[in-house]
Design a protein around this nucleic acid. Structure first.
Lengths: 147, 147
DNA sequence: GAAGATTGAACCGTCAATCTTG
DNA sequence: CAAGATTGACGGTTCAATCTTC
């Protein structure tokens, strides 16, 4: 993030830049803390949580492979391999889609739900530590500003 | 991000969670757009920009290897290899530290500064597109909320 | 022996090519 | 041929082991 020619950049640019830099550093910091806490607890990485949570939210606890990839902003091939790992641990199942033979569904298993319940408290604790002073009102204002 | 037992989570938790989710999705979206725009323009990835910018900001345009790694929240070994690539392209130089023989300095070259000037406009354009309506006042409020 | 940094081996992510089904 | 998904090959990231200097 930068202003190579400071004098030529109007104030709005600087303020936005500052906001983006803050978001970047906050993001890196919190994600780093959460990853460390999960590893410390002998739990899988954050990426696994994201998959389990996406399926938990979905109707029938299932989504098409490409829907999960899009939801997580990762490529289809990346999710294909990630899903293999999760399936090998019994946290999800990969089924053929009943209506379209080309498509597969990633399905959350009971073991996957249990893992979600084990990971969430660790995640939550780090979020609480990261935003100790943020009130509900401030949090809502934040969401409004960012959307 | 999750509330497995919705009813038991107080409102503050939910609002914070919502804020964090918003930050996550904003981050993924903007970073994705910037990476795509850089690749489109035949420029190096965002990680290279971060290195060049960190050095540009530093006194004497130089930092110890581990200082760069810490600043970017990546491991020392990752930066060691990343620095090799940048040095191979002539964007940085790696010097022995004058005072401590164990330490090395990553030093921004003239070519590195030129690359920074080529990458920044592309980056900036994507930031403008990402925050079209965020005023300077809002941006400042945002930074206050997050710190 | 401790601190700064780099390397070997294994793992993860992506692109392009491929396979399968519509 | 088009759409959904997986695989091979390649490059990037990490941990642990190593090397060098204090």
């Amino acid at each position: 993030m930068n202003v190579i020619e400071c004098a030529t950049i109007p104030e709005m640019q600087h303020a936005r830049l500052d906001a983006w830099r803050t978001i970047l550093s906050l993001h890196a910091g919190v994600v780093g803390q959460v990853e460390a806490a999960l590893a410390e607890a002998g739990l899988p990485p954050l990426g696994w949580y994201d998959v389990l949570w996406a399926l938990y939210e979905a109707p029938q606890r299932r989504l098409r492979m490409s829907e999960v990839a899009d939801a997580l902003t990762i490529s289809r091939s990346t999710f294909s391999r990630l899903a293999d790992r999760l399936a090998r641990e019994g946290l999800i199942r990969i089924d053929r889609a009943p209506d379209d033979g080309r498509s597969r569904h990633a399905v959350l298993t009971a073991g996957g739900t249990r893992m979600l319940r084990r990971m969430w408290p660790v995640y939550e604790r780090e979020l609480d530590a990261a935003f100790p002073q943020l009130s509900a009102v401030d949090a809502k204002r934040l969401v409004e500003l960012l959307r």
